[in-house]
Design a protein around this nucleic acid. Sequence first.
DNA 1: AACTTATCCAACCGCCGCTAC
DNA 2: AGTAGCGGCGGTTGGATAAGT
Length: 235
Amino acid sequence: MGGVAWTEEEDHMLKKCIEQYGEGKWHRVPLLAGLNRCRKSCRLRWLNYLRPNIKRGSFAEEEVEMIIKLHKLLGNRWSLIAGRLPGRTANDVKNYWNCHLSKKLNALEAKNTQVNRNTESIRPNQPRIIIGSSSVKRRSLQSESSTDQGTQQQESAISSLTFDPERESHILEPQQENIYSCLDQHGGIIDELPMDFKYEGVEAMISGVGSSSSTNQWDWDDLLSDMDLYNGFSS
DNA sequence: AACTTATCCAACCGCCGCTAC
DNA sequence: AGTAGCGGCGGTTGGATAAGT
């Protein structure tokens, strides 16, 4: 493991402590539980392993599809992504992404680079406004919007930002944008990706009307709410 | 069977924003 | 205004295990 593994006894003590005192106040948990662990370890152990209703085992295709979609929109915001996958933790999602999906995307990126060398004109004529990296933490976005770093164009984009499928891809990093463009444009490697994700356009994805989405617990309004809160757009 | 390499994933680390003082 | 403490997050590490030779 990455550190000292938790014993069953420690798990029991932590669980008992949380059940008795509730979540939160993590700085007190080690003391209350009588554990020789730091607050962060306790919190992580609870969130990723001990918390009730945690789903274990491999990811279903629908879950993988959802992860890919959400990653396209949110970047490496694992906690937000996990929030849309009942029973899955941010750590699980992150690990799954790093172990399984990022490799596929890297392969795509490599291929995309090669493709771009031959087909420069694929890029859109009108430049997109990138309003901060989606993988950059919320603080960066907020600070960008509050400082004079951004151009007027950027500030305008930020201030007027509401959800709009036409603009949703703007929150993607340039690099990601290339990768996902490649997903749309080159079905070959995408065959490795699950289900019908490879055939869906952005519009279908945004509206949640993908052919397999009927079984997903997709609640776009909730997600937007989260994003608003997360990015501070609602304030 | 023994060894090497690849993969998985739990745990740790460092950073940041928020809040109270 | 400055700062310390906290919760929370994403990135990284490294041990266990599986797969390959």
